[in-house]
């Protein structure tokens, strides 16, 4: 019994090492002086330096792309909520014909090969002058966030008892007031988690941004490819860039640990 437990822990530890190592590796190299990087066996203990970060932040217009990513993520999630939340509520609470089909179609967006779907957007955006603009990117990201908002919020709203809403309606609130003043406050935790989830998803998005942006509206993940081209063998700076791009998402991810799995499984896990 004891031996078995020990073996389980050892197997688990080895597996976890595999999953955490690339993250550890990136953080390690990001703080490593250039001279220590190309050494094997790897350096685990060294005098940490911020040189790599300074190099990344001071060049390749890092701050511009950071702004792009932040603005696009915040705006697109906000707009998606404005578009998606009332629709979700209607889809849960009203007897809409073909409800199942509508829900399936919204979910279907999640399964589309996004790089292929983005091609006509590219053609359209070039002709409309939306190519390489934040506005164009926003338009598509709203579409991308919708399935998550509708499917996740659907679950949370369904958990609110209809009787509760009806009792407020009987007391004189309109349907809109019930939604804004009663239902939303009840599901705020789920809403917050959904917002963070969509934020992570948008921030990390790569394919569409690669197709639809040039140097102007480009987001950080796409710019990271530029870092590879320009920094090449400067692994320290490359990892510093990686850490700068990914660490906010790691923080958010850990914050919404439980909800993240619910989001990734489209609400299948409660």
């Amino acid at each position: 019994m004891k031996l078995k437990t020990l073996i389980f822990y050892i197997l688990l530890a080895i597996s976890l090492l595999f999953f955490i190592y690339p993250v550890y590796f990136a953080f390690n190299l990001a703080f490593m002086p250039r001279a220590a990087i190309f050494q094997l066996p790897p350096n685990y203990i060294f005098q940490p330096t911020l040189d790599n970060f300074v190099k990344v932040i001071n060049s390749w217009e890092f701050s511009k792309y950071l702004m792009n990513s932040t603005i696009v993520s915040i705006l697109s999630v906000t707009l998606s909520l404005i578009v998606g939340l009332p629709a979700t509520y209607a889809l849960v609470r009203y007897d809409i014909p073909k409800k199942g089909t509508i829900l399936s179609m919204i979910l279907g967006i999640r399964f589309l090969p996004i790089t292929s779907v983005a091609i006509p957007f590219y053609i359209m955006f070039v002709s409309l002058g939306l190519y390489d603009t934040m506005f164009g990117l926003l338009l598509t990201y709203i579409l991308l966030n919708l399935p998550f908002i509708v499917w996740l919020m659907r679950g949370y709203i369904m958990d609110v008892p209809t009787e509760l809403e009806e009792s407020y309606e009987v007391d004189g609130l309109s349907k809109t007031q019930v939604f804004l003043r009663i239902t939303l406050p009840l599901v705020y935790k789920g809403l917050l988690a959904t917002v963070l989830f969509c934020f992570i998803f948008t921030w990390n998005e790569f394919g569409i941004a690669l197709l639809l942006t040039g140097t102007n509206a480009r987001t950080l993940p796409v710019q990271s490819l530029q870092f590879v081209a320009s920094l090449g063998l400067d692994w320290g700076a490359l990892c510093a860039a990686a850490v700068l791009i990914a660490s906010p998402m790691i923080v958010f991810g850990l914050l919404i640990r439980r909800y993240l799995i619910r989001g990734l499984s489209l609400g299948a896990v409660r």
């Binding site: 976890l16 999953f19 690339p22 990914a246 991810g253 990734l264």
Partner: peptide, 24 residues
């Protein structure tokens, strides 16, 4: 602890993860 570690690859920006693995 285990679930926290398991979250990391899931939230890591995929494009960035590709670059890190490229180095590794």
């Amino acid at each position: 602890v285990a679930t926290s570690i398991l979250i990391l690859p899931l939230v890591m920006t995929p494009a960035v993860a590709g670059i890190i693995w490229r180095i590794m």
